[in-house]
Simulated assay, not measured.
Amino acid sequence: MKPQSMKAETAAKKLGILLDAAPEEFRAAVITRDELAALQADPPEWLETLRREGPHPRNVVAAKLGVSNSGLARGGVTEPITTAEIKALLEAPPAWLVQERATQAAVRAEKIRVADRDKERAARRAAGGGGGSGV
């Protein structure tokens, strides 16, 4: 039975690294699930360095800055950036970052509010309260 494999691009996404910053032997490889698991369990030095210092892919940059991928684009961050650049942005946040972090916080708060409302409605239905118009 042939082991399942993936392109290096897919493996890089699963590892949270920027493919272009990985060594050539990784970029040119077809990675099996077992090889990916081994990289995750015991990362080589190059992988640890990439995760620690970057450059990082957009989704990692967005998470570290506490904004959405769209927020990065609105802020003009279109290229991968390093951990040092992320720290600099967090230490002296530009106006766009302050705004995007506030937007992200509002989105999270709204998601929590809706989830709480839905739990409350489900609890009332389970208790036989009904009471809703079924909209």
Rank of each mutant, 00 (worst) to 15 (best):
V60H: 04
G130S: 06
E79T: 06
R113H: 12
I31W: 11
V107Y: 13
E24W: 11
I17D: 06
A38R: 14
A106W: 05
A62Q: 00
R74Y: 13
G134P: 10
R117V: 05
T49S: 10
E100Q: 15
A127S: 12
R51M: 08
D118V: 02
G130R: 09
A123N: 13
A62T: 02
A21M: 12
G128T: 07
A38L: 11
G76H: 08
A11P: 01
T10R: 14
K119F: 02
R101D: 13
E79H: 08
G75A: 11
R74M: 09
R108P: 02
A29D: 14
A123S: 13
E45T: 12
D34W: 06
I31A: 07
K87G: 01
L47P: 14
R33C: 05
S70V: 01
Q99H: 10
K13T: 10
Q4D: 08
A12T: 00
T10Q: 13
A105Q: 15
A115F: 11
A11N: 05
E48Y: 02
L15K: 08
E110N: 13
P43E: 09
E91I: 00
E9W: 03
R33S: 05
D20R: 01
L18I: 00
L47A: 09
K64S: 13
E24Q: 12
R58L: 06
A102R: 14
W96N: 12
L89I: 01
T32A: 02
T103R: 13
E120Y: 15
L39A: 04
V61Y: 05
I86M: 11
L39C: 08
R101E: 13
S70G: 14
E110W: 11
D34V: 07
D20F: 00
E24I: 04
L72A: 01
A106R: 13
R101S: 09
A122Y: 07
L50V: 01
R121F: 03
K2V: 09
A102P: 08
W96I: 07
H56S: 00
L65T: 03
N59G: 06
V67I: 15
A84R: 14
G75L: 08
R124S: 13
G75V: 11
Q104T: 14
G71S: 03
R117I: 06
L50P: 03
R27I: 01
R74W: 10
G130Q: 06
L36N: 04
R124L: 14
T32Q: 03
G66R: 01
A105R: 14
G131Q: 14
V67F: 04
M1C: 05
E100G: 02
A38S: 15
E79N: 08
R108H: 12
V30D: 11
V77F: 02
I31Y: 07
A122W: 08
L72W: 01
E120D: 11
L65A: 08
L50H: 01
L19I: 10
L89T: 00
I112R: 13
T10K: 12
L97M: 12
E110Q: 15
E48T: 06
M6R: 09
G54K: 05
G129P: 03
G128I: 05
T83P: 05
